[in-house]
């Protein structure tokens, strides 16, 4: 079976959608030459300069131009090189794009995608490593996609482009080199459908993007000890497949939510609240979160690893929830 990388899946999905729909146009910094992460490689040669536009370093203009083009009926895909840079154009995203349809009584529509590299683990430091899905999750009116493998990167990005709403797609930069099965034919993965990556009975591990791999690694380790962990990949935070989380937790009675963003207000807190409010009677142990630390991300390898979640931290958290007597003493320092 043919293989492709998570990085190649980005260009693959973009090409699939550009070939399918001439309204799909790309803009962003260096996207014409393939981009800093080579995620748009070959697209300008194939589709021409009328479809692939290099912009100045102007994130407000990029996000705003995407909004205007969407209002005019195109399906723009904008690139924000590092998701940290959303902070420079958050007005366009949170105040304008997210609210345009609602605020105008449905007169404006925003069929647009903004892609950005996201997440840590590569030593890029505090301003180029953040996982910021939780920023977006505070704002009603935008969909949030965070693929965990190449096939999903392709299929979810394609679905985001076909979606009639604004979608932020987060490409985890530590996953770009990972390989998976190349999709065959027209590949689209519906937004809002969580995937069970491993079945299990004792505990539910809920992950997103890079933390899905940590959950799977943890589940393997735990299996050696006779613990059966189910791994659920949320894939999208909005729409959120809460039903999938609740169904799994009702069966296992335990849940560990693994998120890369700082725990002080991560998306995991929202998922934890849903579980606590709607599945409390089925819980056999307190809801547990493994989150990024509540500090900016440092660069030195040992320090960055200490702050980010890991398979070992997930294993430790699962052992805690399987041992009720130790639960209250096991919270992390961050």
């Amino acid at each position: 079976m043919a293989q492709l990388t998570y990085r190649e899946a980005v260009a693959g999905a973009l090409a699939q959608e550009m070939a399918r729909d001439e309204r799909v146009v790309l803009l962003g910094e260096d996207v014409g030459s393939g981009g800093v992460f080579k995620t748009t490689a070959g697209l300008r040669d194939r589709f021409g300069t009328d479809r692939v536009w290099d912009t100045p370093i102007s994130e407000q203009a990029i996000a705003g131009a995407a909004m205007g083009a969407a209002a005019a009926g195109l399906r723009p895909v904008a690139e924000i090189m590092f998701s940290d840079f959303y902070a420079t154009c958050w007005d366009q995203v949170a105040n304008e794009i997210a609210k345009a349809c609602y605020m105008t009584g449905g007169q404006l529509r925003m069929p647009l995608v903004i892609r950005g590299t996201n997440g840590g683990g590569l030593g890029f430091g505090a301003q180029h490593s953040q996982a910021i899905e939780n920023w977006a999750m505070c704002v009603p009116g935008i969909k949030i996609v965070s693929p965990s493998d190449p096939s999903d990167m392709w299929g979810l990005l394609a679905a985001a482009i076909r979606d009639d709403e604004p979608v932020l797609v987060f490409e985890h930069k530590a996953l770009f080199g990972t390989k998976g099965e190349a999709p065959a034919g027209d590949h689209v993965v519906g937004l809002g459908e969580a995937a069970v990556r491993r079945t299990g009975d004792d505990v539910t591990l809920v992950g997103l993007a890079r933390t899905v791999g940590m959950c799977l690694e943890a589940a393997s380790t735990l299996a050696d000890d006779g613990v059966s962990a189910e791994v659920l990949d949320l894939r999208t935070l909005v729409p959120l497949d809460a039903a999938a989380v609740l169904a799994s937790v009702r069966r296992t009675g335990r849940v560990v939510i693994v998120e890369e963003n700082p725990g002080q207000l991560g998306w995991g807190a929202g998922v934890a609240a849903i579980v606590a409010e709607e599945a409390f009677a089925d819980l056999r142990a307190p809801v547990r979160r493994v989150s990024g630390g509540n500090v900016p991300l440092p660069v030195a390898a040992a320090m960055e690893a200490a702050v980010l979640p890991s398979a070992d931290k997930v294993v430790a958290a699962v052992r805690d929830v399987l041992t009720p007597a130790t639960v209250t003493s096991a919270t992390g320092r961050g």
Partner: peptide, 22 residues
Amino acid sequence: GSYAIVGGHIPTAVGMAWASRI
């Protein structure tokens, strides 16, 4: 539309004009 974040809509107008050029 009327926009209430000062200047927030100017990139939007540019995006509409960009669509017209395309």
